[in-house]
Structures are given as structure tokens and as C-alpha cells.
């Protein structure tokens, strides 16, 4: 990864300094909105409302956070988000592993079409389907339920995580399983004892990815959890911004920070693997 083309480096010292300065400037510009979010969230609500946020939180106060944490609707939304995301991840991960093993370890009639189907389905946007997804769940009495929304999330993330997991299964040599079977393991035993442990890191990354998609998702949550107070965190945050008496920006930014921080941490852990997986998939394909 660090083996960037050394020839591509500028030759003069001044050229190097200029480029490094440009890179640092780009980093600052890109990270500025996140700084602004945290900065605003640490300032007194009243000051932010009247004068706007100061460049640095000199009047430091956790007031906005305490306000959010004292709000019952935040906790309801947090529990909704956790339940929807965890259910979706559990179901998606187990069934995607089955599919990945089938596509990676077996040669069967229709396999090529199945692989293409995975790639094509992945491109169908939820935004083009939510009308009928809403009607379907409404007919089944699953509107405003954890189960209904989770089902849609499972469908949404499935193609991509099958693709990711297939790459991870491909990476575990089939020889290992074969020798375990020589030693008397059943096919399932060989998979469970040999391949599954080696898949650990891949399963974690894939699971985190599925979790983040569900945790961040807004469109379907807005449509499916249309009435009643039980919404997920993104929909809660959207509602929070639409206060009647003008937006409480310090509070909204505190809420945003609370939602974003777990994501930033989890995401930083898995993103390297994802970017690389995407590249190797595309190059190999």
C-alpha cells in the first residue's frame, strides 16, 4: 500500500513542500465540516442561536449533549436503530455466508448467471422501489415495525455482502478443507473448523459494513416508519432539525455527533479492507 510510485514524486524540494502543503490544505477542507459539527455541539444553545457558532468553543459547555441525552425520543430512536440494524446484520450475514460458499466453492449449473445477478441486483436503488415496498409491507401489516424495515435492509445489503464474502472465501484455499476431509471431517465439519475461523476478519468487516448501512439509512426508514414516534436515529435527527421555534443547532450537532462517532470509529477499522476488496474484485473481474 505504501509502495506509491516513487518516480511520481516531484524532484525538487520546493515542489515537494508545495505539494505537501496542498495535501494538508485538502485534508483540512475535507475534515472542516466534521470539526464544525463538534465545535458547534460544544457551545451554549443560546449563543449559537443568536450569533451563530464561534470558530472555537471558548464558551465550552456540554449543555447540548445533556439536552439530547435527557430527551426520551433520542433513546427510543437509539433502541429502534439498534434493533433494526442488529436484526438485519444477523440475518444478512448468515444467509450471505451460505450464498458466498455456494458461489465460491461449488461449480454448478447457473453459477455464472447467479454471480452476474448478484452484481446487477446490487445496482437496483431502493429509491426506485420504495413505493411498492411500502405497499407490500402495508398489506402485510409490517409498516412501522422493526421486522419490516429489517427485511428491506437485508435485501438492500445482501448482494454487496455476498460479493464481499465471496472474495474472502475465495481467499481461503480449498485445499485446507480437502485435507480436513481426508482426515475424516465431514464436509460441514471441514468448513466449520477450517474455513470459518479463517473467515473471521472477513465476517467482522462485512458485518460492520452491513451494520453501518442500516444504521445510516434514511430513505426507507422515513417511508416505512411513517407514523408514530418509533423512528430510527436518522429520521429522529431529521425531525429534530424541523423544530417549530427555529433550529436548535447546538442540539442538532450534538445529536449528529452522537450518531456519527460510533460510525467513524467502526468505519475507520474496516474501510481499508473495503476499498481494497472493491479494487481486487474489479481488476480480477
Amino acid at each position: 500500500m505504501s509502495a506509491a510510485n516513487s518516480i511520481m514524486r516531484p524532484r525538487t524540494a520546493r515542489g515537494r513542500t508545495t505539494l505537501n502543503a496542498v495535501a494538508v490544505a485538502v485534508a483540512l477542507v475535507w475534515v472542516f465540516p466534521i470539526y464544525w459539527m463538534i465545535n458547534t455541539s460544544l457551545q451554549p444553545t443560546s449563543t449559537v442561536r443568536v450569533e451563530g457558532p464561534a470558530p472555537v468553543p471558548l464558551e465550552f459547555t456540554p449543555e447540548a449533549y445533556l439536552g439530547v441525552l435527557a430527551d426520551q425520543s433520542f433513546w427510543t430512536a437509539l433502541s429502534m436503530s439498534l434493533r433494526v440494524s442488529l436484526l438485519a446484520v444477523a440475518v444478512a450475514l448468515v444467509s450471505a455466508t451460505l450464498a458466498a460458499v455456494a458461489l465460491s466453492r461449488f461449480r454448478f449449473r447457473g453459477r455464472a448467471s447467479a454471480v452476474v445477478a448478484v452484481l446487477v441486483i446490487q445496482m437496483i436503488p431502493a429509491e426506485a422501489l420504495f413505493i411498492s415496498q411500502f405497499r407490500m409491507l402495508s398489506d402485510w401489516g409490517l409498516v412501522n415495525t422493526v421486522l419490516g424495515l429489517s427485511l428491506l435492509y437485508v435485501g438492500t445489503v445482501m448482494p454487496f455482502i455476498v460479493w464481499m464474502l465471496k472474495g474472502f472465501v475465495d481467499g481461503v484455499p480449498a485445499d485446507l478443507e480437502e485435507s480436513a476431509m481426508t482426515d475424516g471431517c465431514t464436509r460441514f465439519g471441514a468448513f466449520a473448523r477450517v474455513t470459518l475461523p479463517l473467515l473471521g476478519p472477513g465476517l467482522v468487516s462485512t458485518g460492520v459494513f452491513a451494520f453501518l448501512v442500516s444504521w445510516n439509512e434514511f430513505t426507507l426508514a422515513l417511508v416505512i416508519l411513517s407514523s408514530g414516534g418509533r423512528v430510527t436515529l436518522p429520521v429522529w435527527l431529521q425531525g429534530f432539525q424541523e423544530g417549530i421555534s427555529g433550529t436548535d443547532w447546538a442540539g442538532v450537532m450534538a445529536g449528529s455527533t452522537l450518531i456519527a462517532v460510533p460510525v467513524l470509529i467502526l468505519f475507520s477499522i474496516v474501510q481499508r479492507r473495503m476499498a481494497r476488496g472493491m479494487v481486487s474484485g474489479a481488476v480480477k473481474g
Binding site: N216, V263, L264
Partner: peptide, 9 residues
């Protein structure tokens, strides 16, 4: 960080 920020945030 920008990539990971939830869209509504």
C-alpha cells in the same frame, strides 16, 4: 471521516 458521516448528519 467524510465518507463515514451518516447522510442526515
Amino acid at each position: 471521516f467524510a465518507w463515514a458521516t451518516p447522510v442526515i448528519a
